[in-house]
Amino acid sequence: MTVRMLLGKSGKLVFNAMMLAFSVACVFPIAWIVYSSLKTKDEFMLNSVSLPHRLQFHNYYKAFVDGKMYQYFISSALNTVTTVVVVVFLSFCVAYALSRFRFKWRNGIYSYFIVGMLIPVYGLIVPLYLQFKQFGLYDKFYTLFLPYIAIRLPLPIFLLESFIRTVPAELDEAAHMDGASTSYLMTRILLPICKPAIATIVILTFLDTWNEFPFSLVLVSQESLKTLPVGLTNFYGQFTSDYTTLMAAMVLSILPVMAVYLAFYKNIIQGMTAGAVKG
């Protein structure tokens, strides 16, 4: 029901106020971890909602330097960037093949990838560990690339497949008529059209990979190969946790995700170069 139809001017105001309240509710948790990270441990213990008495950045120093967060940062960045690049490339290839061509195994392959979205990761941990040990893939700098890429593939494939199908096939045909190669068609014509979908994929893949926990926990053991979420467990003690340092570490760890979101979201909004697809 549109707002305009349903409500008068005052109604519109109420509605806008509600939206604003909702948005505030979305910002509050971020604000909360930011200001909590500036409190002392004792302050937080006594009251977890109140504002800090005095700003102090000690927690950040503790998290970044003492907790060696920079090390986990590097590892996470390497794994995440690699994963995002490879996933975008591979999923685009698969989605293109699945959406544009009819072949014998097409539906089979499509379902084959669906399966991947329904598997509880913890169910894969034990067999995967054995496999990685067997093949000498355990605890190497590239160890996490494989599972990260594989587990992130399905969603982008579906998103892109459904997106490409909305792009009229006549476009491809016309390009072929003009003598364009498949690779030219894919990279120069289709890819720009898919920009909003790809931006979505970049954001989601980045987010999920950046936060991934079980694979990183089990498949690597050297400190320098562990990723941020595993590094964050250092702020939990056996019986008590250092919450304020944890908050500082969390603030640092969500910054890259925020940055990627804000950068790529613009791409979604700007949308496709209108006109290219008009049938």
Binding site: L90, C93, V94, Y112, F113, I119, L146
Partner: peptide
Amino acid sequence: GLLAPSVAIYTFVIIVPL
């Protein structure tokens, strides 16, 4: 060429353990 790399990685990491 379009499908094999994805299917290979995916099979090794997801389907075999499954």
